[in-house]
């Protein structure tokens, strides 16, 4: 399988990365090189093989459903580019 310029632009949109026409063209070539490389996986017979979900056979650890953390609003917004009274500020979303 290979990707064309339109697909690359669509994927960039899905990934929320702005790409110029020039970027998209370069990426098309690079992505096709990588996709060409991974193509060889199709020759592997995987009939009856389960997809891996965990490298170590272990049951997922579960925590008790209790509050163990919190009251850190100032810490959480400390690194944000724009905040106001412990809220994250973003450009207007709803008109």
């Amino acid at each position: 399988m290979s990707v064309d310029l339109q697909t690359v632009k669509r994927v960039a949109r899905l990934a929320r990365i702005a790409v110029s026409e020039e970027d998209a063209e370069r990426m098309t070539g690079e992505l096709n090189t990588i996709l060409g490389f991974v193509e060889q996986l199709n020759e592997v017979d995987v009939s009856g093989v389960e997809p891996m979900t965990s490298v170590t056979p272990m049951e997922m650890k579960k925590r008790e459903d209790i509050v163990t953390d919190g009251n850190k609003a100032a810490d959480i917004v400390a690194n944000a580019p724009a905040t106001e009274e412990n809220f994250f500020l973003v450009p207007k979303v709803v008109e």
């Binding site: 690194n79 580019p81 450009p91 207007k92």
Partner: peptide
């Protein structure tokens, strides 16, 4: 939004 770089833009998706 939450940390690091922000490039200002007209709407949120653009940002």
């Amino acid at each position: 939004v939450r940390y690091g770089l922000r490039v200002p833009a007209k709407d949120i998706v653009d940002m």
